[in-house]
């Protein structure tokens, strides 16, 4: 297991390196001087030159890249002040260390994604289970068709509609906002409830359909039949045997969805005006704010890669065949 984790971490580091290099060099291929932006109004040629020097923009691009990457590990000194590791530099746009901004914005996105995932996993898988357990009945048909309708929804359509009805129309819920969980748990919950549900609606349908189909498949497996032949009650058979077997495909899909989950969170942030990483990403691109772009990019990639490692490790927990094979083939 340890070997597996080390291997996957090294792999993730390599991916991050590739992503960073790609983004960095792509940035310098656009014909727009970032110093002009950092300089603001009343900019003189001298000021631009100064900024160029301060930010090291005159150096060859590979050298800048190397400096940037070492900075992440060791920290860097800038004219504006020291930037401790992990240093993604100072934002061109607001002159704050990029990492500070990231750390500010991260809780919003994390709350949004984790909360949304909890909602859609609970609702989606639950509905899927019910449909599978009662396959062929009216319940199954209703669940299946509702999930089909929902799966064709889009956040940017559904979001405003829900807002209009629940917030501005009836005033049942407060307008979506982010309050740190540590400060006001109730406010955190009510503020994010609408975004969670809207996000969940989009993803739920997939999980309902998937849970239903894999469970029905599993219920026909020989070992499930064996469990029934042993006299295990239906509930035990369902959860201990069929459900256990369905976890692998569900976890797989969840792992693949992680990327779109972050993407979905970004769209959701935009739809509901929440200041998270998604907002930050969009703003940084508009501002041609290289350090911020790099920061958001690397930070979110690292998160997704981390989640993927967790998902893969989950396989080993679920399926002893994976666990033991990884042990012996090492």
């Amino acid at each position: 297991m340890l070997r597996f984790l080390v291997r996957r971490t090294l792999g993730a580091a390599a991916v991050l390196l590739l992503i960073s290099a790609f983004t960095f060099f792509l940035f310098f291929s656009i014909p727009q001087d970032p110093a002009l932006l950092a300089c603001g109004k009343n900019c003189t040629a001298d000021a631009v030159a100064l900024i160029h020097r301060n930010l090291g923009l005159d150096d060859p691009v590979p050298l800048q890249y190397a400096a940037f990457m070492t900075g992440i590990v060791t920290g860097r000194e800038f004219a504006a002040g020291p930037c401790p590791a992990p240093c993604f530099g100072y934002s061109f746009a607001n002159d704050r260390p990029v990492f500070e901004t990231l750390a500010d914005r991260f809780p919003t996105t994390a709350s949004l994604t984790v909360g949304g995932a909890v909602v859609f996993l609970a609702v989606g898988l639950g509905a899927g289970m019910i449909a599978a357990a009662r396959r062929g009945t009216a319940t199954d048909k209703v669940v299946s068709s509702v999930s089909l309708v929902l799966s064709s929804m889009q956040i940017y359509f559904l979001g405003p509609v829900v807002l209009g009805v629940l917030v501005y129309g009836t005033g049942l819920l407060p307008s979506p906002s982010y309050v740190p969980l540590t400060e006001d748990p109730a406010g955190w919950f009510t503020g994010l409830l609408i975004p969670w549900c809207v996000m969940a609606v989009i993803f739920t349908a997939n999980y309902t359909r998937m849970a239903r189909s894999t469970l029905i498949e599993q219920l026909q497996e020989d070992h499930v039949r064996t469990a029934r032949a042993k006299g295990m009650p239906g509930r035990t058979v369902f959860f201990r045997y069929a459900w256990r077997g369905s976890l692998i495909p569900i976890v797989t899909i969840f792992g693949m969805d992680l990327g779109s989950l972050f993407g979905g969170a970004m769209i959701t942030e935009f739809t509901f005006g929440l200041a998270g990483l998604g907002r930050l990403a969009v703003d940084s691109v508009i501002d041609i704010d290289l350090p911020m772009i790099m920061g958001v990019m690397l930070f979110s990639s690292a998160l997704i890669l981390l989640c993927n490692i967790v998902v893969d490790a989950a396989y080993a927990l679920i399926d002893p065949r994976v666990r033991l094979d990884a042990g012996s083939s090492a």
Binding site: D222, H223, V224, R244, G245, D319, P320
Partner: peptide
């Protein structure tokens, strides 16, 4: 009443000892 099945690989759950 107990039963022995044809294929012992699929008749046993892979997830439990």
């Amino acid at each position: 009443v107990a039963m022995v099945f044809q294929d012992p690989l699929t008749a046993l759950s892979p997830y439990h000892t």
